[in-house]
């Protein structure tokens, strides 16, 4: 295994200082929080930067807050384990809570952040699929100002995003779930309990009083260069009563959206089959939650 590449390490104590640093070093800078993604990547020679800026000492950035009118705000340095155990996340965003409970290991959840998981832009990022299903957006801040980017526009390829080197993820904003809605996330891998996902599917579903779908988002993980929205399946569900047959067809539509590859974790063929199975299960669970048939 090669040596860790050399870099300068910066530990700014304020957001202003942090923004100054990433702006000054934008030609070769990485923002770090827990280091759970960046350190192994640097060690493997996959990530190289002359400067690493750690955000862990920037005050006020780790807050998690929820308001019924405004939804959820996850601060840029909020740890995955803190998000997982936050009572409002557990109550209103079960798919996200599930992802944050199950991903990686206890230690990595204690170190890593949701923002980091997204910034890393792995196609298999566990928090990405649920957050896409919830219609989340990111608040990106730089020295000159801030902008809000919908999460579905954020990823551009494996490890690639629209964020500029001098931008920092200040927060993740997630709309409050509407009435009669349900959401879920499921993943599979060969080691059943503790693993990176070979395939993941998340969905959030909103029904009217008659049980017709009036809002739906489905997101697929680890079956394309980025986490994907399954729009064809979503369109198929809109205005319909989601019965078993429709869910099976929606699952098939998800498979058509997926662009899986063969890799060390699974074959493309297996991944397609799992998209079908998981999509059906996730959508069925969303429907039951939205109709109030399942407790969360």
């Amino acid at each position: 295994m090669p040596n860790m590449p050399r870099f300068n390490f910066h530990r700014p104590g304020t957001m202003e200082e942090a923004l100054d640093l990433v702006s000054r070093f934008r030609a070769s800078v990485k923002v770090m929080c827990g280091g759970t993604d960046l350190v192994p990547k640097m060690r493997a020679g996959v990530a190289v930067a002359e400067n690493v800026v750690s955000l862990t000492r920037v005050p006020g950035l780790s807050t998690i807050s929820y308001r019924d009118d405004d939804g959820l705000v996850i601060g840029g340095t909020a740890r995955i384990s803190d998000v997982a155990r936050h009572p409002d996340v557990r109550r209103h965003y079960p798919a996200l809570a599930y992802a944050c409970d199950k991903m990686a290991t206890v230690q990595i959840r204690n170190m890593g952040t949701v923002a980091g998981n997204l910034a890393n832009a792995a196609p298999s990022a566990d928090t990405a699929a649920p957050l896409l299903a919830y219609g989340a957006s990111l608040v990106l801040v730089e020295r000159g100002g801030r902008r809000q980017v919908p999460l579905e526009d954020f990823f551009t390829g494996p490890g690639l995003t629209v964020a500029e080197p001098m931008e920092i993820i200040e927060a993740i904003r997630v709309p409050a779930p509407p009435l009669r809605s349900g959401s879920a996330y499921l993943r599979v891998s060969a080691r059943s309990k503790v693993d990176i996902a070979a395939v993941g599917v998340a969905a959030a579903l909103n029904l009217d009083l008659e049980g017709r779908v009036i809002g739906v988002r489905i997101a697929l993980a680890a079956v394309g260069p980025t986490p994907l929205r399954a729009r064809q399946a979503e369109d198929m569900l809109m205005e319909q009563i989601p019965d078993h047959d429709l869910l099976a067809r929606a699952g098939a539509a998800c498979v058509r959206t997926a662009k899986p590859i063969d890799d060390v974790r699974a074959s493309a063929n297996f991944r397609r089959a799992m998209v079908q199975t998981l999509a059906q299960r996730v959508l069925a669970r969303c429907g039951r939650l939205a109709r109030g048939e399942d407790a969360q």
Partner: peptide, 28 residues
């Protein structure tokens, strides 16, 4: 040394972390 096995686990500010993924400078 890849954050997968947990043999390097220590407590930092009361939380279990993988010390092989934690930069020493971060533990200042």
């Amino acid at each position: 040394n890849q954050g997968d096995c947990g043999a390097c686990t220590v407590l930092m500010e009361g939380r279990s972390v993988s010390s092989c993924l934690t930069l020493a400078a971060e533990a200042h």
